[in-house]
C-alpha cells in the first residue's frame, strides 16, 4: 500500500516537475562534471548512455569538453577521444591526463589527404573502434567526434546501445551542424541519433571578451552558451517529459600560451616596423 502511494507520488511529481526526478541509482551512474551549469539541475552525462554534443563547427563544445576531460582524468577516470578526421592539435590537449591520474588517449583516423580526397568512408573505422572501446570496459568516457558527417545509422546505433548497456561507459557524440546553429534553432531536438539519452547544444554568443596587449587585441574569446535538452535526458531513462531547457553562459578564462623560453624575437628589420 505504501509502495503504491510512493509510486503515485513519484508520477505526480514527475508531471509537475518534469526532468527533476532521479530514479534510484541514476545519481551513482551520473558523471559529475564539476561545472555548475551542467550539474546544477540534473546530470548531463550518464554512464551506459549516449549523449549528443551538438553545435556549429565553431561553437565552444570541444573547449567545454576539454575542461571536463581534464577534471575527469584528475579524478581517475579513463577517457578516449576518437578524432575521426585528425583535426585535434596535440598542444591543446597536453594538460589533460598528463599527471599520474586517469589516462587520456586519442584515436586518430590516420587518413591521408589522398584518401580524404578519394572519399574514403573513414567513419566506418571510427564507429568500429568506438564499439570496441566501449566493449573493452577499459574507459569511463568514450568521445566520438563525427564532425559534419555525424550520421549514425539505426543498425550502428543499436550496436552501440547494446555495447553501452553491457559496459560502464558514457558515450559522447560530438557533431557539427552549421545549418541548425542559429540562435532561434538552438535547443530544438533534431538529433541524428534516434534515441540519444541527452543532448547539449552549444554556440558562441555576445559578449566577446578581448584581451589587449601592447599594440592591440591579442586574444578574442566569445562567450559559450550551452543549452541542455533535459527532456531528452529523461527520455533516455525511460521517463517522458516536456522540452524545458536550461541556458547558462560561461566566459572562459583566457591566458596567453606561455613557454619556458623567451618570446620569439621579432626579426623584421627596423624599416619594415
Amino acid at each position: 500500500m505504501v509502495q503504491v502511494g510512493v509510486a503515485n507520488l513519484r508520477k505526480e511529481l514527475e508531471q509537475l516537475f518534469p526532468g527533476k526526478w532521479l530514479s534510484p541509482g541514476e545519481s551513482v551512474r551520473a558523471l559529475k562534471t564539476g561545472l555548475s551549469f551542467l550539474d546544477v539541475l540534473s546530470p548531463a552525462l550518464v554512464r551506459r548512455h549516449l549523449t549528443e554534443w551538438f553545435g556549429s563547427s565553431s561553437s565552444g563544445k570541444t573547449s567545454v569538453l576539454r575542461t571536463l576531460c581534464s577534471r575527469w582524468c584528475a579524478s581517475g577516470l579513463n577517457i578516449v577521444y576518437i578524432d575521426t578526421f585528425d583535426r585535434l592539435l596535440a598542444s591543446d590537449w597536453c594538460d589533460v591526463g598528463n599527471k599520474n591520474e586517469g589516462r587520456f588517449w586519442v584515436l586518430r583516423g590516420g587518413v591521408t589527404i589522398l584518401e580524404r580526397e578519394a572519399g574514403l568512408d573513414y567513419t566506418k573505422n571510427a564507429l568500429w573502434a568506438c564499439e570496441q572501446l566501449i566493449r573493452s570496459q577499459a574507459f569511463d568516457v568514450v568521445i566520438l567526434d563525427l564532425a559534419e558527417r555525424g550520421v549514425i545509422t539505426s543498425s550502428v546505433h543499436a550496436r552501440l546501445k547494446r555495447s553501452l548497456e553491457r559496459s560502464n561507459t558514457s558515450l559522447i557524440v560530438l557533431r557539427d551542424d552549421d545549418s541548425l546553429s542559429s540562435d532561434s534553432e538552438m535547443g530544438k531536438f533534431s538529433s541524428p541519433v534516434s534515441s540519444a539519452a541527452g543532448r547539449v547544444d552549444f554556440g558562441f554568443v555576445e559578449p566577446v571578451r578581448i584581451e589587449y596587449g601592447v599594440d592591440g587585441p591579442i586574444s578574442i574569446t566569445p562567450t559559450i552558451r550551452s543549452t541542455i535538452a533535459r527532456a531528452i535526458l529523461r527520455a533516455g531513462m525511460g521517463v517522458s517529459g516536456g522540452g524545458k531547457s536550461l541556458e547558462v553562459s560561461v566566459s572562459p578564462y583566457v591566458s596567453n600560451r606561455l613557454f619556458t623560453h623567451p618570446p620569439v624575437p621579432d626579426r623584421r628589420t627596423s624599416k619594415k616596423r
Binding site: 583535426r87 591543446d92 572562459p252
Partner: peptide, 10 residues
C-alpha cells in the same frame, strides 16, 4: 566554473 585557458583549435 572556469574553463581551461584558450579555445580548442580544430
Amino acid at each position: 566554473d572556469n574553463l581551461m585557458p584558450g579555445l580548442v583549435l580544430k
